[in-house]
Simulated scan of single mutants.
Amino acid sequence: MEYIRVTKDNIEEEHICCAISNNKDIQVSSKKVWLADRFDEGLVFLKSAKRGKCFIEYIPAENAWIPISADGYMYIDCLWVSGSFKGHGYSTELLNACIKDSKTKDRNGLCILSSAKKKPFLSDSKFLKYKGFEVCDEADNGIQLMYLPFDAKVEKPMFKECARHPHVDDKGYVLYYTSQCPFNAKYVPVLEKTAKENNIPFKAIHIENKEIAQSAPTPVTTYALFYDGEYITNEQLNDKKFLKMTGR
């Protein structure tokens, strides 16, 4: 497979795989703005030259938008291979490219979010374990931090205390989200509108910088929905799913 590295120089022309192809769509444009702002922080976005969901996105853990202590590691935001790209070894190729690049940059290893029980938009723990990753920490909601050290002597990454026990003080529905996931540009306004029309207590908190993300009350910051203080899901909801969840 031929791969393309998305950079500041080509991001306007390149398809970013995980949203629809129209660059004028708010989902695509919002994600590209987020990516462009991260390149100077060491973010790498490597994708298939063929259009589709086949890419890896990673960044030095010090600049990752999640609450972890993992200095010296490389954090994988997303490793996504799906559809017709599955079953050809592309996940392994992308992961190997990340490992090679990270070693060249003298990182201690890799870390990534997964889960004890499969959850949407999180990497498959079975695949990660097959590739040598181990669980190094786990939050109360089953979200796991997995790591692949390049040296057995390096310190293990861990969640910050704020993320280990996901909880918020607000009543009603509270959503934490970032622009890292392109789908949020479409589905967060849908939830805000649906909640308002149905008198459902709802508040959306847009995380707009890494400092806030690194102190968030959830290990998953791209999309984390709470109800009466308790964590519910990291799956983007449309209006029908949200209303069903609320019993309306």
Score class of each variant (00 low, 15 high):
residue 10 N to G: 05
residue 10 N to D: 05
residue 11 I to N: 04
residue 11 I to H: 04
residue 11 I to L: 09
residue 11 I to F: 07
residue 12 E to W: 02
residue 12 E to F: 03
residue 12 E to D: 07
residue 13 E to N: 07
residue 13 E to I: 00
residue 13 E to Y: 02
residue 13 E to M: 04
residue 13 E to V: 01
residue 13 E to P: 00
residue 14 E to T: 09
residue 14 E to H: 05
residue 15 H to N: 06
residue 15 H to D: 09
residue 15 H to W: 10
residue 15 H to A: 02
residue 16 I to N: 08
residue 16 I to S: 08
residue 17 C to A: 14
residue 17 C to N: 13
residue 18 C to P: 01
residue 18 C to K: 13
residue 18 C to F: 10
residue 18 C to Y: 12
residue 19 A to M: 08
residue 19 A to C: 09
residue 21 S to E: 09
residue 21 S to T: 10
residue 21 S to D: 10
residue 22 N to M: 02
residue 22 N to R: 07
residue 22 N to V: 02
residue 22 N to W: 03
residue 22 N to C: 02
residue 22 N to I: 02
residue 23 N to R: 11
residue 23 N to L: 07
residue 23 N to Y: 04
residue 24 K to V: 04
residue 24 K to H: 05
residue 24 K to W: 02
residue 25 D to E: 10
residue 25 D to F: 07
residue 26 I to K: 15
residue 26 I to M: 09
residue 27 Q to I: 00
residue 29 S to K: 02
residue 29 S to M: 02
residue 29 S to P: 01
residue 29 S to T: 03
residue 30 S to D: 14
residue 30 S to A: 15
residue 31 K to S: 13
residue 31 K to G: 10
residue 31 K to Q: 15
residue 31 K to H: 14
residue 32 K to R: 15
residue 32 K to Q: 13
residue 32 K to S: 06
residue 32 K to C: 05
residue 32 K to V: 09
residue 33 V to T: 12
residue 33 V to Y: 10
residue 34 W to R: 12
residue 34 W to I: 01
residue 34 W to Q: 04
residue 34 W to A: 07
residue 35 L to W: 13
residue 35 L to A: 12
residue 35 L to E: 14
residue 35 L to H: 15
residue 36 A to N: 15
residue 36 A to S: 15
residue 37 D to Q: 14
residue 37 D to I: 01
residue 37 D to Y: 05
residue 38 R to G: 08
residue 39 F to I: 07
residue 39 F to P: 01
residue 39 F to E: 10
residue 40 D to V: 06
residue 41 E to W: 05
residue 41 E to A: 11
residue 41 E to D: 12
residue 42 G to N: 01
residue 42 G to L: 00
residue 42 G to V: 00
residue 42 G to Q: 01
residue 43 L to D: 10
residue 43 L to C: 12
residue 43 L to V: 06
residue 44 V to Q: 14
residue 44 V to L: 06
